[in-house]
Structures are given as structure tokens and as C-alpha cells.
């Protein structure tokens, strides 16, 4: 139940253009995407050790080939109900660039969809939800594919709020 992330060469999106390849996945019925360059690998759900007294959205820690990395339940992080474990449940291992070294973390998602190449003209700027702009910093933009709308996440920002980030070194 493990698939290495497909390698690709797209340059990381900057402020202007968020175009590029995205790993898309589902949380409940919604589709989200993370830049493929941030994704290290996909692993099937494995036993997660709970970390007591950690924020509720930290599901725990897993042993990634000898390395201990924390796993974030993205649904809990976004205020949804807890991710149920199914055949489709996947941990996306992402590598974040932190100011003091790279961090590796797992994010728990309901289902991985596909790797999408999103062109610049398919991306809308992040919407504002009324006066409450709290969610907006997480979003790079909103991508449109033939089938659906994909929320393109700035995964660094999403997880920077997580206090239990794992350091790779």
C-alpha cells in the first residue's frame, strides 16, 4: 500500500503563479491539492501511536522506516469530523521547509485522487469568505479541473500552525 510520489520537474509556484503539478486528495467530499514538490511519498494507514496532551488534530506518531514523524488529521485541523480509517485512507508524507531545517510530517486524508497539472489560467485567487478571512492564508488558490473545484493548499502554512511538527534532523 505504498506508492512513491511520481517525480516531476515543475518549478515551485510563486506568488504570481500557482500553476504546476498538484497531488489531489479528498477530505470528506471536498477536493484539495498540495504541491507535488512537497510530497515525499504516500503510505497506507498504519498503526498510529497517540501522543498524549498534543493538540487534538495531531493523531499521533508513526515509524517511517526508523524515523518518527507526527501525523496530522487534516479533517480535524479543518474543523471537520475525525478521519475514519477505510481502505482508501492514506498518509501523505510531506516535507516542509522550516526556518531551522526541513520537517517531515504525515497528513491523514480520506482518499488520494490523482496528480493534476494545473495551468495558471485554471487557478482562481483564494476566495474571501465574508469578513472572516481566517482560512484564507492556507490557500494558494482554487483550481478548476473538468470534474471539480480543488482547494490548493499552502501546506507549509497549514502545518506551521501545528505545534508538533517533526524535524527531519
Amino acid at each position: 500500500m505504498r506508492a512513491e510520489a511520481p517525480s516531476q520537474t515543475a518549478s515551485p509556484p510563486n506568488e504570481r503563479s500557482v500553476a504546476g503539478k498538484f497531488m489531489t486528495f479528498k477530505l470528506a467530499e471536498e477536493a484539495y491539492g498540495v504541491e507535488i514538490l512537497k510530497v515525499r511519498e504516500l503510505i497506507g494507514l498504519m498503526e498510529i501511536t497517540r501522543i498524549p496532551n498534543a493538540p487534538h488534530y495531531v493523531r499521533g506518531a508513526i515509524n517511517l522506516r526508523g524515523r518518527v514523524i507526527p501525523v496530522i488529521d487534516l479533517r480535524l485541523k479543518f474543523g471537520m469530523s475525525v478521519t475514519e480509517s477505510t481502505d482508501q485512507t492514506v498518509i501523505i508524507v510531506v516535507q516542509l521547509s522550516a526556518s531551522d531545517g526541513a520537517l517531515t510530517m504525515g497528513i491523514l486524508v480520506d482518499e488520494v485522487l490523482e496528480v493534476l497539472n494545473i495551468e495558471a489560467d485554471q487557478v482562481e485567487p483564494p476566495p474571501t469568505f465574508g469578513t472572516d478571512s481566517k482560512d484564507v492564508p492556507f490557500l494558494l488558490g482554487v483550481g478548476k479541473s473538468e470534474k471539480r473545484v480543488i482547494f490548493l493548499l499552502d501546506i507549509d502554512r497549514v502545518l506551521a500552525m501545528a505545534p508538533d511538527a517533526a524535524r527531519s534532523n
Binding site: 501511536t49 501522543i51 498524549p52 496532551n53 498534543a54 506518531a61 515509524n63 526508523g66 524515523r67 518518527v68 507526527p70 522550516a98 520537517l103 505545534p163 508538533d164 511538527a165 517533526a166 524535524r167
Partner: peptide, 22 residues
């Protein structure tokens, strides 16, 4: 084998565990 766990809970609440082991 001791493995580092997280980056030290920067939020200041007491850590009752000092690391992880496999």
C-alpha cells in the same frame, strides 16, 4: 533507540515525554 519527536512543543506546556522510541 531514541528518536526525536517533534520540535519540542514550542507552546510551553510541560512535556511529559522526552522522545519517542521504536
Amino acid at each position: 533507540v531514541i528518536k526525536p519527536l517533534g520540535n519540542g512543543n514550542g507552546n510551553g506546556h510541560a512535556e511529559l515525554y522526552s522522545g519517542a522510541a521504536i
